[in-house]
């Protein structure tokens, strides 16, 4: 699949944003990882909303008719994209109220708790929907897997967690270790899931064949002689993207390093170091995560093969 930058930016930025919201809500619910008050709320929620909004805006760049984007909300009964849109919109007021409660320290524990629960629910649900947009497509083997939607959630939590860690350390001398620990846990879980994802897609039997796509298997092996047009069409530009195996493996290593190893190491170290250094480590973790997750998302598209390539000269998909 063609890795469109608008979509990569959208899913990674808003993913981190929703992840961050989850951590903020959790902290409202359980322990105050981040202190209340105007500055903290502005910074933390501001960051989350900025990421989410930037992502959403970026996603409309992908649209042929951005001015009609509002229409995308209408089909929530059937379309994961529509559901994502609806939930994204719902998340704004819910999380916004939580932010206000945080900022002005109002609302009491019950209301805050309810708002926090609702924020967690809508943010996670949004992430789930994003994942399901891809996971629901039977045409793309690398996406059509039970692992994909949870991965979106976990990666959101991990990237949001790293951000949360940074924000926490910016606002206070010490970040509660549990916060860092949970972020670390998310990274580790994400690492295992992503490794598992790659193993799965690498070992998955490629059962769709040119023979089945053309129905000509009874006559022997099917080979494309000439494509219908001598220059690539939309379908090939969009769905025919191919990344070299070697290149992909290198990029996977980069993801391992930037998205998992470096942030995890930074977080572990930051637990052991003093405020100054741990802040720097938190910052490094964030930058590294950003590089890692963008690469991960690029690969998520680039490595995904669409069955339609079977009509354009590929044997199996």
């Amino acid at each position: 699949m063609h890795p469109a930058y608008s979509v990569i930016l959208f899913t990674t930025a808003s993913g981190a944003g929703y992840g961050l919201l989850v951590w903020l809500a959790a902290s409202a619910l359980i322990v105050r990882f981040i202190p209340p008050g105007t500055m903290p709320a502005l910074l933390a929620f501001g960051m989350a909303f900025t990421l989410i909004t930037a992502g959403l805006i970026s996603s409309t760049l992908h649209l042929g008719r951005p001015e009609r984007a509002w229409r995308a909300m209408s089909q929530w009964r059937t379309s994961w994209l529509s559901r994502e849109g609806v939930l994204a919109i719902i998340t704004y007021p819910v999380a916004g109220l939580l932010g206000l409660a945080w900022m002005f320290e109002i609302g009491g524990p019950i209301l805050t708790g309810l708002l926090a629960l609702a924020t967690i629910a809508s943010a996670v649900a949004t992430l789930w929907c994003t994942g399901m947009i891809y996971a629901s497509l039977p045409t793309i083997r690398a996406w059509h897997m039970p692992l994909v939607a949870p991965l979106y959630i976990v990666l959101g939590l991990a990237t949001g967690g790293v951000l949360h860690n940074l924000i926490g350390r910016l606002l206070q001398e010490r970040m509660p270790p549990s916060a860092t620990g949970l972020a670390l846990a998310a990274i580790v879980v994400a690492y295992f899931m992503k490794s598992n994802y790659w193993e799965t897609i690498d070992s998955a039997a490629r059962t769709y064949t040119a023979e089945s796509a053309t129905g000509l298997g009874a006559y022997g092996k099917v080979r494309s002689l000439d494509p219908p047009h001598s220059r690539a069409n939309f379908v090939m530009r969009e769905m025919g993207y191919e990344v070299g195996r070697k290149h992909a493996l290198k990029l996977r290593q980069l993801v391992m390093l930037a998205l998992f190893a470096i942030p995890a190491a930074c977080l572990v170290l930051s637990l052991l170091t003093g405020p100054g250094l741990s802040l720097i480590l938190a910052l490094i973790a964030v930058v590294s995560t950003a590089v890692g997750v963008v690469t991960e998302r690029w690969l998520f598209f680039a490595e995904a093969e669409h069955v339609v390539v079977l009509y354009y000269g590929k044997d199996v998909a």
Partner: peptide, 15 residues
């Protein structure tokens, strides 16, 4: 009413 999100093209197996 189409917004040109192209998702349907991803969903179609037949190009």
């Amino acid at each position: 009413t189409c917004i040109g999100c192209k998702l349907c093209s991803w969903a179609c197996a037949y190009g």
